[in-house]
Write a protein that binds this DNA or RNA. Structure first.
Lengths: 337, 337
DNA sequence: ATGAAAGCGCTAACAC
DNA sequence: GTGTTAGCGCTTTCAT
């Protein structure tokens, strides 16, 4: 910890620390020469103000928190990029927290940022989260919160999401058009709004196409990667196996590819695959993967932009901000005939 | 910002704020009943201590910074995961900064964390970084720094890296064994130690195999993705085109695949490809990609573990810690005969 | 244009 | 076992 502070600068220049403070912040009440002297000395001594003293005094931390389920996922890394791009511009610092899809972790994290540590929070909730209390407490403490991608709909605050329902519909419709009749939606959550919407769109497309509802046309992944994989492989090995898979997230698509490979199932001839994914490698997979690609960077950027409005404008009504940025369906070989 | 503080708790209970402070921290000098009273009230009022007041007083932030070139890259997301896993356990907060491969950004970032904002720093330097001054200043201020993956060798502090030289050697040797004779190493930097080591290993393998040094057997990427791609495509389209590519990073491998696809070059028949990469999709690429896979999570975890030793043990000699965690070569179709 | 003094919320040394 | 007090480093009135 740099032991050099404003008092030392003041002493060496034989002026008061308030003068130094003002000089460093270019106050108009300080003379040109004094400012120059002070700034030169500060530079020479490698002075850098203690941010926490300043935060304490000003009740502003110039820091935001990003809370999300995981980070080793294309969507989330890209979203952080978007968030960071606006935080940088605003001169804000970014704290990252991972819930690992656990509500209790998330709750603990939220408890630790409700006390002045951050000026605002961006959150993508865990799979388990149903209770709005931790977030409501934060809002009650006057800290703005913006959801990105995974929201908790019952909480009255801003959110930036994508058109999940529509994409679920369009994705299923494409698979039907390609002649598939035994579609399987593999979802990573039965409760997450984004997954429910994708699923609802998927079901509606089947309905519209006159396909009867069938048991097993949707299955849900668990937390456990291994058992997930077994589940997927089992479905693909069944006698009445699906002829098309819609994967709700890239990790599942990868597992489907690997399972198909192991089972000797040819994609797209014997099995079509379509995934919600931001995989940069989608075009060079074997075969190239048809994706619903979310605007991950833009979602992060937009959410952060809204958050800063909430931080900077005292009376900005966050709860009126519900941005939906559409995803785009990109057809590739995995769904070709 | 929660307006409720220790003073309010003290007042409502008619005790002093120091008693409250001690009670909350389970000091042995406080009676059981008082502790109970205080904690109950604190819970009821959703009290959460102001971390910055505490930091200011204790001169400890319980926060670390992670500075890296980018985040939308498998290696870095996995490394953060490793870092986060130990920070969580220690109860530390994690600030993330991106240099975007620019020295000036990195310098600015380092200037902002040299003042008590963090108790320690994990850094993977930008491509441009050659000057040790910003980091030396931090060390001079008494803040421990640990390099992960990309180090600045002239700085005397801990580092956790992988066996880059050896991997460059082994990778080139594999390509030679497969009968390739016109190897091309595509590197993302001419100056980064990790790249130089990979390159040196590569060159040594060629030398050992009796291949004469040739111009153009190594090319360097630029910051610009587009022009990078053009460069790669041009090399692959040349009359004397390489019969094997060693890519120093996953992004380059992806571009090579796309360029080969566009040019109608068959991998592995006409072109073998091997990449330093943590791509989760390597096994399902077209064709599956032979990789030198870095222990990204472990590097992050180990670096963080060492950093915390430096933070917690006053006289721990960071400069003696030079950990090397080996990468592993995984053969797949892209280098098969 | 400069300085003195109070105070942000907390902790710790020192009374009592 | 509890309270008083000083002070972390900074910003901000309010004097001068």
């Amino acid at each position: 910890m740099s032991t050099i502070n404003i008092q030392i600068l003041a002493d060496t220049l034989n002026i008061s620390k308030s003068t130094v403070s003002k000089a460093l912040r270019d106050s108009h009440e300080i003379s040109k020469e004094t400012k120059k002297k002070v700034k030169e000395l500060a530079a020479k001594m490698n002075y850098s103000p203690n941010p926490y003293a300043s935060s304490l005094r000003k009740k502003k931390s110039r820091t935001i928190a990003v809370v999300m389920p995981e980070i080793a996922d294309s969507f989330f890394s890209l979203a952080i990029n978007g968030i960071q791009s606006v935080a940088e511009k605003k001169g804000y610092h970014v704290l990252i927290y991972l819930s690992h899809e656990k509500y209790t972790n998330e709750k603990k994290i939220l408890g630790e940022v409700r006390n002045g540590r951050v000026d605002g929070i961006l959150i993508s909730i865990s799979k388990e989260t149903k209770n709005e209390e931790p977030i409501d407490k934060i809002l009650a403490a006057g800290v703005p919160v913006v959801f990105f991608d995974r929201e908790l709909e019952s909480v009255h605050t801003a959110s930036v999401t994508t058109n999940d329902y529509e994409c679920g519909y369009v994705a299923a419709k494409l698979l039907l058009q390609k002649g598939c009749r035994r579609l399987l939606f593999i979802s990573h959550s039965a409760s997450l709004p984004i997954c429910k919407k994708r699923e609802a769109g998927f079901r509606m497309a089947l309905l519209d196409a006159g396909c009867p509802e069938k048991k097993g046309q949707v299955i849900y992944g668990t937390d456990n990667e291994k058992s997930n994989y077994q589940l997927i492989k089992k479905s693909l090995a069944a006698k009445q196996r699906p002829d098309a898979i819609l994967a709700s997230v890239e990790k599942i698509a990868i597992q489907v590819y690997i399972a198909a490979q192991e089972l000797g199932l040819k994609i797209p001839e014997e099995l079509k695959v379509l995934a919600f994914s931001n995989l940069e490698t989608a075009p060079i997979l074997n075969p190239s993967l048809t994706t619903v690609t979310q605007p991950a960077f833009e979602i992060g950027k937009s959410a952060a932009t809204i958050l800063f409005k909430g931080i900077e404008k005292k009376h900005f009504r966050l709860e009126n901000e519900r941005v939906i940025i559409p995803s785009v369906l990109i057809e590739r070989r995995s769904t070709s005939i």
